[in-house]
Design a protein around this nucleic acid. Structure first.
Ligand SMILES: NC(=O)c1ccc[n+]([C@@H]2O[C@H](COP(=O)([O-])OP(=O)(O)OC[C@H]3O[C@@H](n4cnc5c(N)ncnc54)[C@H](O)[C@@H]3O)[C@@H](O)[C@H]2O)c1
Ligand SMILES: NC(=O)c1ccc[n+]([C@@H]2O[C@H](COP(=O)([O-])OP(=O)(O)OC[C@H]3O[C@@H](n4cnc5c(N)ncnc54)[C@H](O)[C@@H]3O)[C@@H](O)[C@H]2O)c1
Lengths: 268, 268
DNA sequence: ATCACTTTGTGCATCCGTTCACAAAGGCGT
DNA sequence: ACGCCTTTGTGAACGGATGCACAAAGTGAT
């Protein structure tokens, strides 16, 4: 199994070549995963500030805009190099450039979207896609009734073209927006074609070879996490009953294949 | 500022009322946040197994289905109680029930979606929504041209009705699918109306009072994280050049308002 | 009953991430 | 030139999460 969402780094080398003087670590230095996941947030806040004409920003301001602790922000940025000015703050444009560079956004990233249903079409229509150098190389679907449908500057292409599109556009990132049933096989084809980064919207855990990076966007998982906290809050405040009506429980506890029953008995 | 995505818990009371019959610790015990975020994944794998008629599952099987280490899985489940049978594994149905209970999924959760654009409509159409007890109470939009549009069993309602919908359906969870510009004000209205859990799709950091739980689903952040790893991989393997064409850099480094220039000078 | 085998639940060492707190660094006014 | 004020960058302490490895607990066969 390979790297899924947050996880390991691989063997680390805490102090290999981190001693030459001014060399911005952003070239060879490994960034902590937690830092990587926050840099895009900083970048978004920074670009907002740049658009509003802000020239300089302190770690306190930027941190509060990004919703994090200012010490954390400074430590995150310190991993990229020493780009602030003590007593002043950070130059907004310069920091945007450095963060972009660290994230690998100084180049274009062609993306292929597989599955042109409700979600796939919403994605393809989404303007915020292109703003950071992500360009949709193709939108693919297996349904002949959908193939050919125009969508913005593109038309839906048949998923038979997957390998061709990936090779021709040198696609490194694929987004899967098919039903769960087809997601694994689509994933396998993407990987076989050379895609090493996959954004998965289908509600299942993808199995990929080592060296392939999968991130998932999973609506119902997010909702379930929210539900957990909402429940906890209302249990804490009121005696027990939260908002919303009670639902019939999947199964009456107490008649399980032996062990469960035994457990309950033991616990009584 | 309040709890955003992963973060603190609040004051704890480890052992309140954990003694009635089959009551495992899942009643009062605090779950680690990392565990909470994995339980929905286990739940999904478990329901898949149940549908395929699997009766019993070992931690190894379940862990590999969920893409995690089996020790981690066992530790996660141990926080809910001791529901396994040594030498055998876990009873699938029973575990589904226990995990659902821990997550607060034994009740219905009405959800209001604000913003009926491309994304909001895709969400409202999404079948996987209802499968775990999440019921769409209403789909709201401010655009009079969209209000009234039928969508599945619902019709788009005007966002003026927000407070009314929240109160009448006892909505605890809100999803924001409006443009970024309106998201903060929509969020404020939701919170004022009593919503304490928010799922945000708009690309900005929401500011909420303490006690409100915000989770974000942010496509472009995910893509940027993928881009970072993709870049790292290709820099590591080849000398430098990754897939895809070079993009013009936002700004030529070297002519920054003093400090940056100074920095660059030092680096040279 | 006993033994061999399987699998859970957890103590423990380790690692990663967060946060505090402060010295060093720089700007600016006098 | 000098001292005051602001803000960065980071050492260090802490807490949470991960994963190893094993004893305890269970099944099933003889
Ligand atoms: N719609 C949402 O809001 C939403 C939310 C969360 C998750 N999801 C998930 O995203 C995925 C897509 O959702 P959707 O609502 O767009 O579904 P959809 O049914 O509208 O679209 C799926 C599309 O994938 C195509 N497809 C099926 N097999 C394919 C294959 N092998 N190759 C190429 N294309 C194939 C189908 O022809 C169809 O057009 C699903 O897995 C869904 O669970 C959707
Ligand atoms: N479409 C995608 O794939 C996608 C992906 C990631 C993020 N997003 C984000 O999700 C949000 C919605 O995206 P979209 O593509 O559906 O946009 P959209 O423009 O199609 O829809 C936005 C809808 O919100 C409505 N709206 C605006 N202000 C409102 C208000 N105050 N109250 C109620 N409704 C209001 C508009 O009338 C419109 O119908 C955006 O913030 C976008 O950045 C979209």
């Amino acid at each position: 199994m390979a790297r899924n969402s947050l996880s390991d780094f691989g063997p680390s080398d805490p102090a290999t070549s981190a001693d030459r003087f001014p060399a911005g670590p952003s070239s060879g230095g490994r960034l902590p995963e937690a830092t990587v996941s926050r840099l895009p947030v900083y970048l978004r806040v920074l670009t907002g500030m740049a658009e509003r004409g802000v020239v300089t920003v302190s770690s306190d301001q930027l941190a509060s805009g990004a919703g994090v602790n200012s010490a954390k922000l400074r430590k995150d940025l310190s991993h990229l190099g020493s780009y602030g000015i003590r007593g002043v703050g950070y130059d907004v444009e310069y920091l945007i450039y450095q963060v972009s560079r660290a994230l690998g956004l100084t180049q274009d990233w062609p993306v292929v979207i597989v599955g042109a249903g409700n979600l796939g079409r919403a994605l393809a229509n989404y303007g915020g896609f292109a703003t950071r150098g992500f360009r949709i190389a193709a939108l693919l679907d297996s349904d002949p009734a959908i193939v050919g449908t125009p969508l913005g500057r593109l038309a839906v292409r048949h998923s038979d073209d997957l390998e061709d599109v990936v090779a021709r556009h040198k696609v490194a990132i694929g987004a899967i927006a098919t039903p769960a049933a087809s997601a694994q096989s689509v994933c396998d084809r993407l990987v076989a074609a050379g895609v090493t980064s996959i954004l998965n919207f289908a509600p299942l855990v993808l199995n990929v070879a080592d060296g392939v990076d999968v991130r998932k966007v999973d609506l119902s998982i997010e909702l379930q996490i929210l539900a957990f906290h909402a429940q906890r809050r209302s249990v804490e405040r009121n005696g027990r009953a939260p908002r919303g009506a009670l639902r019939t429980v999947p199964k009456e506890a107490g008649r399980f294949p032996a062990a469960a029953a035994a457990k309950s008995a033991v616990e009584a």
